[in-house]
Amino acid sequence: MKHYGPTSTGEAGEAAAALVIDHLVPLAETWDSGASKWTKARRVAYAKYLTDPRHLVAVSARSNRSKADQDPATWMPPSPDATCRYTADWISVKRTWGLSIDQPEQDALTRPAASCPDQDIAYTPAA
Score class of each variant (00 low, 15 high):
35 A>F: 01
47 A>V: 15
37 K>V: 15
73 A>Y: 00
61 A>F: 15
78 P>V: 10
42 R>Q: 03
115 S>V: 13
81 D>V: 15
103 Q>G: 02
93 V>F: 00
72 P>N: 01
42 R>D: 03
95 R>Q: 11
71 D>G: 12
101 I>T: 11
50 L>R: 14
29 E>M: 10
39 T>N: 05
101 I>N: 03
78 P>C: 05
81 D>F: 12
79 S>Q: 12
62 R>G: 11
27 L>Y: 13
88 A>R: 08
37 K>M: 15
95 R>Y: 00
26 P>C: 06
51 T>S: 14
108 A>I: 03
34 G>A: 05
106 Q>N: 10
64 N>C: 09
92 S>C: 08
42 R>C: 04
58 A>Q: 09
106 Q>H: 09
70 Q>H: 09
61 A>P: 08
68 A>Q: 07
43 R>Q: 12
68 A>N: 11
117 P>Q: 02
29 E>K: 07
73 A>E: 02
35 A>L: 03
66 S>V: 12
66 S>D: 14
107 D>V: 12
89 D>K: 06
44 V>T: 15
68 A>W: 08
87 T>M: 03
117 P>R: 09
118 D>W: 11
57 V>M: 06
51 T>E: 15
30 T>Y: 01
41 A>P: 02
122 A>R: 10
108 A>P: 05
39 T>Y: 04
63 S>I: 12
86 Y>C: 09
89 D>P: 06
99 L>H: 00
42 R>P: 01
29 E>V: 13
25 V>E: 02
40 K>V: 13
62 R>F: 14
81 D>Q: 13
92 S>D: 03
86 Y>A: 03
90 W>Q: 00
115 S>Q: 13
33 S>A: 13
65 R>I: 15
61 A>T: 14
86 Y>G: 02
36 S>N: 15
102 D>A: 10
54 R>H: 04
54 R>K: 10
122 A>P: 04
55 H>V: 14
48 K>A: 09
55 H>A: 13
105 E>M: 06
44 V>Y: 02
121 I>Y: 01
102 D>G: 04
115 S>I: 13
70 Q>R: 12
87 T>L: 07
54 R>W: 01
36 S>L: 14
43 R>S: 11
72 P>L: 03
50 L>P: 00
106 Q>Y: 00
115 S>Y: 10
63 S>E: 08
32 D>Y: 12
95 R>I: 02
104 P>E: 03
54 R>I: 06
97 W>L: 06
109 L>V: 08
94 K>H: 04
52 D>K: 05
123 Y>P: 00
107 D>W: 04
121 I>R: 00
25 V>S: 00
63 S>R: 02
80 P>Q: 07
46 Y>A: 05
58 A>H: 11
100 S>W: 04
40 K>P: 05
124 T>D: 05
34 G>M: 05
92 S>E: 00
100 S>E: 14
43 R>P: 05
124 T>M: 01
60 S>R: 04
57 V>C: 10
121 I>N: 01
40 K>D: 12
117 P>C: 06
111 R>C: 00
76 M>T: 08
49 Y>I: 05
26 P>K: 02
65 R>W: 12
93 V>E: 01
50 L>C: 13
121 I>M: 06
121 I>E: 09
110 T>P: 06
117 P>H: 10
39 T>M: 08
33 S>H: 03
51 T>D: 15
95 R>L: 09
105 E>F: 05
72 P>S: 06
